[in-house]
Design a protein around this nucleic acid. Structure first.
Lengths: 328, 328
DNA sequence: TTGTATGCGTTATCAG
DNA sequence: CTGATAACGCATACAA
């Protein structure tokens, strides 16, 4: 690996000049420029980012901390982040926190030691004072952390309301809301949305908690539906649990959507391959990741943020787990 | 951020001693040790990995280059890599190459500039001399690159043979093999496996090419099945195309598995949520990633490899897109 | 057992 | 416009 001083020697100039050329900071004469360019070609030189980092105390690495890339929501998000990072010349380190506070902290520290330029965080830890422990640009994704930290989220409440209202329009009269883990603010917001749609309507409804996991959801719902056969509409706070519900309903020989209707939340691809196709409130996952990354890079590059937080509207995608809307 | 010399000062020793303590290389007296430990606590010191990298010309970063994290095969793989890396104290940079040679090269160079410790590569570029262009530990994953580079793959041929033989046992008599892109060696191997199972049996069979993509596969197969209604068994070289085939068959009102049977390849999660559940040749994706990472780390740490390449057997998972095997 | 000095590859300051 | 040179934070050979 050739170094900057190799280039300098070959080009008969000083390293300072080469450095100036590389970063086009300051002047560099035409002659010098030419010989430098030649030397760089000659030596196939390319600057060491590590040395550069040490000097500038910055790198072009972005840390992305998510719960689990296997969770079907995150690949698309990660992809959006990586694409956007790539576009701006950054590179991303992937960290799976498993919703585990210890692991999350570990990564936060590790990333700091690497002089990463900034961090995108999908965190469960809400009470923790992240900004204090790491003195870096951060943006919270999908789940808000603290008021001071820029956040990109979906309008969960609105989405949930949309879903629930649609379910009612489609004739459901006895609703079940499958919430996510209680400590997730996004799940809380979705439950709120559900309630706001029910509002004061006189009808049967109930809420149960279920993890965002196919199999767990299936198990829980199988038992629950057996005990509560009157339920004819389900709003699940995630597509994962919606699909679990779908399977449970199948096992109970319930016809979908005739006997029971289901609406999910997230808009992950699987919802479209399952049959019947899952009606769901789709988050704009790609936009979410892209926006977060752009917000982060703006911070990194010192531009002050005009918008400190952004909330993206989800969209109801109607497929086959709901009946046709009645347009009387 | 405290530095090593801050610690040295506070502990009343030299930086060299602190450094020795940190890496426990060389001697360090009990007294020094104690005061150093104290100072480190005091200052909440933690060494800069960047400076360390510059000095040692090594880092604890592993580069992972894959086609697309959105492709449902890769999240699990990436997770395995990350888990294993984490276990050994490494960290991973995620790169999506989009099967694009330019992008792949770009990342290869970029990673080199970062002094990454090694690279795990799922490459399409077979003719390229990777090892030459980057002088780093590399291991090829899923798809072999060059003979000299350690490779971790699934036994594709064997898996495909298994699948095809099973299809025959289940009574299929007119087979279609949906291959992947021609230039993928893994797809080639699977086609070979298919052929070897057919061997000299007198029967109808044909091969068509289809990308590993739900929608494309569905489109292609819809047209094809319409023209060739006699086909009663499909071996798809990927679960993605198998699922596409499933949807196409649905649209044509073919009953599965009564009218047409399908076996996929990969063992991605979606295969289990789709209905009917997809019979498939499951790769041990996690083991694949874990093995590759271990192999890489061994190289990085200078241990010579006893096994330069490993080939993992896949497993036939029987679900509902095939009929019961006839045990006459 | 410990400290000094030098190098790792860049950037950046400050004289020329 | 250009060139020394200190600094970035750490590792390490060599002395002491």
């Amino acid at each position: 690996m050739a170094t900057i001083s190799d280039v300098a020697k070959l080009a008969n100039v000083s390293v300072a000049t080469v450095s100036r050329y590389l970063n086009d900071s300051g002047y560099v004469g035409t002659k010098s420029r030419e010989s430098i360019e030649l030397a760089i070609k000659e030596l196939n030189y390319s600057p060491s980012e590590v040395a550069r980092s040490l000097s500038t105390k910055q790198s072009d690495i972005i840390g992305l901390i998510i719960p689990d890339i296997k969770n079907p929501f995150f690949p698309e998000l990660a992809r959006a982040v990586e694409d956007t990072a790539f576009e701006y010349g950054y590179t991303v380190i992937l960290c799976n926190s498993d919703e585990n506070a210890e692991k999350e902290k570990h990564y936060l520290q590790k990333l700091t030691k690497k002089y990463v330029a900034g961090i995108i965080l999908t965190s469960i830890i809400e009470q923790e004072n992240h900004r204090q422990s790491v003195n870096l640009p951060i943006v919270a994704l999908d789940r808000p952390i603290q008021s001071e930290i820029p956040t990109v989220t979906t309008n969960n409440q609105k989405g949930a309301r949309l879903a629930t209202e649609y379910l009612l329009q489609c004739g459901a009269t006895n609703l079940l809301c499958m919430s996510g883990p209680k400590n997730m603010t996004s799940s809380q917001a979705r439950v709120e949305g559900f309630k706001s749609a029910i509002n004061d309507k006189e009808m049967e409804w109930q809420i149960i908690e279920s993890p965002y996991d196919f199999e767990m959801a299936e198990k829980i719902l199988y038992d629950y539906l057996k005990e509560n056969p009157a339920i004819d509409g389900i709003f699940a706070c995630s597509d994962a649990s919606a699909i679990g519900a779908l399977k449970a309903a199948h096992r109970l020989h319930l016809r979908i959507p005739e006997d029971i209707q289901i609406v999910g939340f997230d808009g992950i691809q699987i919802g479209n391959v399952v049959s019947p196709g899952l009606t769901t409130v789709a988050q704009n996952i790609y936009l979410l990741g892209q926006t977060a990354t752009r917000l982060l890079i703006k911070q990194i590059e010192g531009k002050n943020l005009t918008e400190t937080s952004v909330c993206i509207d989800p969209e109801l995608i109607i497929r086959e787990t709901t009946r046709k809307e009645r347009t009387e």
